[in-house]
């Protein structure tokens, strides 16, 4: 009934997820990781969606959380801030959150100043018609001088994986299908733990 807090994860951690194209599954993965962090590892977790218009507002609970100019909601033990204004990110880092999960769209990358110690994850499908999106993503990331993170993708095929790795000289990992981010299964938890760094 009572889970033990993991003592060796005391340090604040920041995870940044960037989608190469719409429908990459960033929001889905962020929610899954936030759920794991808050309810399995019992850490104080915040999820920020840096986007001028977020669809997350449609599922949020009634408990309102206000941080500066941002309005968020508590849901499944996670503070969720949809449509989080990017100038407020630095202020939020001073708060007492243990895990900060940031979902970032391709358009917002240039504007946001992000901490250097964050763990980066790039998400997208490897279908041939999305390869151009990756080129754009990598170009944007290199302009910003941001460290390139781990590349993840839902539903990988062997050829696409090898093509991607050859084209971009990067390895890519497959994310298992997660039907419900609020109802994680053992195999999904095991995978999320590898992202979490446990």
């Amino acid at each position: 009934m009572f889970r033990k807090r993991i003592s060796y994860l005391k340090k604040r951690r920041i995870y940044i997820f960037v989608g190469a194209h719409p429908g990459a599954g960033v929001r889905h993965l962020c929610l899954s990781l936030a759920e794991l962090s808050a309810n399995v590892f019992l850490r104080k977790t915040v999820l920020l969606e840096i986007s001028p218009k977020s669809r997350l507002t449609e599922i949020l609970g009634e408990t309102t959380v206000i941080k500066g100019n941002a309005v968020g909601y508590k849901n499944f033990g996670v503070d969720i801030f949809p449509e989080f204004p990017h100038p407020e990110v630095q202020k939020l880092l001073t708060e007492d959150y243990e895990d900060i999960i940031i979902s970032l769209s391709l358009e917002e990358i240039a504007d946001v100043i992000l901490p250097a110690d964050a763990a980066w994850f790039l998400l997208g499908s490897l279908k041939p018609w999305h390869i151009g999106d990756y080129k754009l993503l990598f170009r944007k990331l290199s302009i910003n001088g941001l460290a390139l993170g781990r590349c993840l993708s839902f539903g990988l095929l062997a050829y696409e994986k090898s093509f991607f790795e050859k084209e971009f000289k990067r390895s890519v990992e497959e994310i298992p299908f997660i039907p419900d981010p609020f109802l994680l299964q053992r195999s999904q938890i095991d995978f999320l733990k590898t992202l979490y760094g446990v």
Binding site: P128, W129, E167
Partner: peptide, 13 residues
Amino acid sequence: GEAVCEHILAYGR
């Protein structure tokens, strides 16, 4: 307006 087939031809197998 997206160049889907062009990308498939360029990067597909």
